[in-house]
Design a protein around this nucleic acid. Structure first.
Length: 351
DNA sequence: TCTGGGGTCCTAGGACCC
DNA sequence: TCTGGGGTCCTAGGACCC
């Protein structure tokens, strides 16, 4: 099953501000009278009636509906609600994998012996989550993760949707290519250029041709289009990288502004690293310029968990590689190659 | 429409080692 | 003097997801 919380951030806000329940509401970045540079994180279904969507520029949303309720993002609160909801789901699961703040896969291969009993479980889980947290969710039920995910999309909002393995091809056939998990804008464009329009077309496509164009990914894609997915519900997830990034209110060429941002971002990253009792080896600085081109610069260093190592490496990467003339829109700092070991404390000193 | 911030996975070339 | 095959690590970038 895939459990997906419905319009999660706004649903959380409705719990503590019941007065917004009957108003179009958007959680996202500050619209600043239409000048804001962020996007919509989530909106409720009343806002969706006006065409507002997650990921849409907040300025566009503001133009469509300036009198909607605009709320700032309160991650700490959503994380707390997420823990409560996921805690309920976990109680029912043989295996449990959280994939984002508002989504989790659960496997019930031992508890549930057939589709009927799986749907009964889904009802219980949905009711328990709603009773214990007050939050709505949708559950997709099927024979693998991919189909559970696709079923869940079809079941939204506030639903339970079963897709049996034998129904998969029929269920997927008419869907748009980018409805398929793993296919985004670019791949859709390439597939369309090859003459494929729907998931059903992809399912029947010439495998060799897909191989030539996309490599092994092409074969995976076609398996997905046929409802085949062998991936497991992974219980023990470890973070691979930790980063922070920030978009300036105005694009800048000022070195001092950029370096101040790098120190601030480094500080936030280090706090996360130390909280998780991790260390890092690789530092990456990301720059997005005003024309939206992006450049990454990374460097491996001696394993560390210290602010000075991060800030000095990030500063150096910026100083060496950032353009002096192009205006910078966004800067990011990320650490990866994470480990549990602490940084070395100069053990090889010659006495 | 004018575009955030958090991530993951994959590919590919070059340096280097044996 | 001109050269193979196996491997690891490092770096850069692209595509995708929520």
């Amino acid at each position: 099953m895939l459990i997906d919380m419905d319009y999660f951030f706004v649903a959380c806000e409705e719990l503590r501000r019941p007065e917004i329940k009957d108003k179009p509401t958007i959680v996202g970045f500050d619209p600043k009278q239409g000048e804001g540079r962020g996007v919509v994180m989530t909106c409720n279904y009343l806002a969706r009636k006006f065409g507002i969507r997650s990921g849409m520029p907040i300025s566009t949303a503001y133009r469509i509906k300036p009198d909607a309720v605009y709320l700032p993002i309160d991650y700490d609160y959503y994380e707390k609600m997420s823990r409560e909801a996921m805690g309920v789901a976990k109680r029912y699961a043989d295996r449990f994998e959280q994939v984002s703040i508002d989504e989790a896969y659960i496997e019930l291969s031992r508890k549930s012996i057939d589709y009927d009993s799986a749907v009964e479980y889904a009802k219980k889980i949905k009711e328990s989550i709603n009773k214990e947290t007050g939050l709505p969710c949708t559950i997709g039920v099927s024979s693998n993760k991919l189909l559970a995910k696709m079923a869940c999309e079809a079941g939204k909002p506030d639903g339970i949707k079963l897709v049996k393995e034998e129904e998969a091809k029929e269920f997927l056939k008419g869907k748009d290519l980018d409805d398929l998990y793993g296919i985004g804008r670019k791949t859709k464009e390439k597939l369309e250029a090859m003459g494929y329009k729907t998931v059903g077309d992809l399912a029947k496509a010439n495998t060799m041709e897909l191989m030539e164009k996309f490599g092994s990914y092409g074969v995976e894609m076609q398996k997905s289009a046929n409802g085949i997915d062998e991936s497991k519900v992974e219980e023990n997830y470890e973070v691979k990288s930790i980063g922070r990034e920030k978009t300036f209110e105005r694009d800048t060429t000022e070195r001092t502004v950029a370096l101040a941002a790098i120190r601030e971002l480094s500080n936030e990253v280090i706090k996360e690293v130390q909280k998780a009792e991790l260390s890092f080896k690789v530092v990456t600085v990301k720059m997005r310029y005003a024309d939206f081109t992006e450049h990454l610069k990374s460097r491996s260093i001696r394993r560390s968990d210290q602010y000075d190592d991060l800030a000095s490496t990030a500063t150096d990467l910026y100083s060496k590689y950032a353009s002096r003339v192009k205006r910078i829109r966004k800067i990011g700092v990320r650490v990866s190659d994470l480990g549990k070991e602490k940084g070395q404390k100069k053990i090889n000193s010659f006495v």
